[in-house]
Design a protein around this nucleic acid. Sequence first.
RNA 1: GGGCCGGUAGCUCAGGUGGUUAGAGCGUACGCCUGAUAAGCGUAAGGUCGCAGGUUCGAGUCCUGCUCGGCCCA
Length: 968
Amino acid sequence: MTENRDYRDTVFLPQTDFPMKAGLPEKEPHILARWQEADLYAQLREARSGREKFILHDGPPYANGDIHIGHALNKVLKDAVVRSQTLLGKDAPYVPGWDCHGLPIEWKVEEAYRKKKLNKDEVPAEEFRAECRAYAAQWVEVQKAQFQRLGISGKWDQPYLTMAPEAEAAIVAELLKFAETGQLYRGAKPVMWSPVEKTALAEAEVEYEDITSTQIDVTFEIVESPIAELVGAHAVIWTTTPWTIPVNQALAYGPEVDYILIEALDEFAEPTGQRYLVATELYDSFRSRIRGQGNPNQNYATVDFFVGETLAGTICRHPMHHLGGFYAEPRPLLPGDFVTTDSGTGLVHMAPDHGEDDFALCKAHGINPKFVVEADGRYREDWLWLPRTDARNMSVINPKFNAPDGPICSDLKEAGALLAASTDYQHSYPHSWRSKAKVIYRCTPQWFVPMDKPVAPFDYPVAPLGGIGGAVALAVSASKTATLRETAIKAIADTRFVPEKGRNRIGSMVEGRPDWVLSRQRAWGVPITLFVDRKTGEYLVDPEVNARIIAAVREKGVDAWSDEAAPALLGPDYNVDDYERVVDILDVWFDSGSTHAFVLESGVWPELQSPADLYLEGSDQHRGWFQSSLLESCATRGRAPYKAVLTHGFTMDAKGMKMSKSLGNTVSPLDVMRDYGADIIRLWALSVDYTEDHRIGPEILKGVADQYRKLRNTFRYLLGALDGYTEAEALPVDQMPELERYMLALLGELDGKMRAAVDAFDFNTYTRSLIDFCNEDLSAFFFDIRKDCLYCDHPADPKRRAYRTVLDTMFHALIRYAAPVLVFTSEEVWASRYPTSGSVHLLEWPVVPAVETDASRWNALRELRTQVTEAIEPLRREKTVRSSLEAEVTVSDIDGVLREYRDLGPDFLAEIFISGPVAFVKTTDGPGISRTEHHKCGRCWRHLPEVAEDGDLCARCDDVVTKLDAEA
RNA sequence: GGGCCGGUAGCUCAGGUGGUUAGAGCGUACGCCUGAUAAGCGUAAGGUCGCAGGUUCGAGUCCUGCUCGGCCCA
């Protein structure tokens, strides 16, 4: 051989068209279009028909606005669950849904009205609701497209909407089940109320502004007390809402607060007999207010001190007790934990009609609201003091009404009960977002679901439902009654929680929650379809009437509940004039709490079933959907609507801070898809620990993109290395070299991890295990070692065939593992190898051959390999050795264990080390390295003794090239 | 303010029932290869395990307080 031939042509390099660069933002939409064209979701249903089902029931997002990162995380997790269960061979249909009723949509529509100078109240309710419906429908379409772009697989052409008439009818049917089992009652509750708009307001509709109010100090004469010296003294209360004094029903003290009894002194420092009770800590500020009333020298003598709790049993009378009736009733002093010494007098006047603390404390002591202030903010006509008919009556939020010279203060002064009044108190006060007018707390009648009323589950007639919501759980033992709270707590115990801590979270909430307030004074929602007997106040329970109501709603939607329709709904047996038609709508949580009924049970989606295998939402839903669904189902079916509940944390910014538009630290999934692609968001969502709050940011996304590239290149290598591979080349496992058998064993180990991760919904471990395997076991170990074999051995060589057989097995396993995560890329990879064999997502969990290997031997061998590469490093640094193939290695083999590796094949260790020849020595030292004296084979670049000159062929290559030349 | 949850290398995460110098992958730096090449391989540096007390022979791991952050309430 006189000149060196270029052997590049005789080397089998990986060959593939699969590009290294992903270009996901451009590529993904095309892949998505192909799926939609082929209706992949329908194909999947067909393929899994008859299999064991796995039902993930979708919690409906609110149909308003573009999706945010929280939506993306939630839907990707759901998709990963559905896809991984599908991969296991189960039939896992996914019907996405939307929550469509409710305030935020009402607002948006109202806002549009205002821009057009229209008044909502002048628009017919039906028309207004139609606009809300259209608004929601439009956002459903937008979000649908965005979710699909994320690669979420589901029945997008038939989602469920809470505003669909069938859904509205089913929700009504569920409500009527509560009515029929006596699980509804009308009570009262203070709500934020705008007298200007004559409507209740939600917290979010209220804005706080600084205002200056009248502040007054009012005395209540103590008429009874276990403490004798208090009788005849006056308890002093302080308030900034004088208008609530006419509705006062009690006083509150702080059990832990210290009080002082003082006596006013006259100008000669003589006692006047006027004694007042205030909190010790607030005595100074109280006195300065009195002095500010033109009594700059007013002094007091201390009479005694009391701890709050000793005031129990003390009773006052109202300053206007002379009016008789309501005002002559006793005003007890009640213990209130909410009483502080921040301001006022440490004694708080209680008007259960107009404060939450007031309401709760009074209710606990059997004192009920009086509903004195009407919707327009004026006292009602029959009220004793300042009734509507009084010329001085006006809206209670009118500053003049509350002024020191206004009717209330004037009358109090006349009664000798006004110690001080001034118009200089600055504080923050709630105003209507819309009208900017002040709002008040006002008690209004509301509908409740009792948590602690014993009911006999299922022992009641059920309205004929005609298919919608008709599937009611079979009656179980009706002999034992249980409260809703008890049933719910039992259901929680019967449910699997992932992570486990969710059980405690929802459990403590259900244990402590108050009765469920169902009613809202709103327009866009499902009506509380009850007729209330005007005489008895009882709501009508008649299965036939209920059936008519349900049928009407199914036909016309929520508009079916109207005054015009009332006679027909009631039917001939009732006189419409005897009944009040309830006009409140349902809390939207009742809507979504009923989805299990109208989605899982209705038969509209026959592929679904109830209870669901899994509900999966953010941790805020412990108070939301998880709970409303639980309560709704427990009240009507006696069990939870789910077998398992999975909760995820919230996505924070890169620093762990909450995202907000005002901070400008939001990350939009739409932007990430545009810049990186949906597969990157998916890989991110499935890499983080979703059980806790987790982060996203530029650095994190860059890291995720790196991980993605590694996976992509692994597949690219597999595609290239498997170029031209067919079944005919496959070799049985028992004919494979030890390395191949070891790799198959590792794959089996990985397979076990992946299955366990799917069962635990632990996608973090799932993706990590996959990536680590690609990095450590494949790229840095197996692929690297077998590079020589792949490139240089003859295609028919059993070793090369074994290698490619294992690569093929690896490919088929890894592409399936990757499919639920990298939905687009896995399809791209699959299509690159199998352009005509359908979607990768139709495949099932890989069958991995069970192979036994000596794990401890391989662990020791890999440890030795690490030592060898470490030992080569210094020689590389000094440039003695460049490629590891130039390194000759001696390894210690005192006990002769390594010698058995020789049985594993010629040059076995050199192969594993990717080094030059390996020799055994009897020392206790680590591996020894020296530069080889052998020449470099011109084809495989290994340094071997038979190579006479650099560029000549080694024996193996000579053999291969000869064969190839002959075959050519 | 209350209930619940969390804070381990630059990033993402492991660290049964407390026990040798706290681990992995990625990234970074440096080097090798130039026949996976905007790829592949190797080596190295990086952590007072949020802070402070306490229990213990010994604590990332148990207790208390604090701090920061989160969800839900008020």
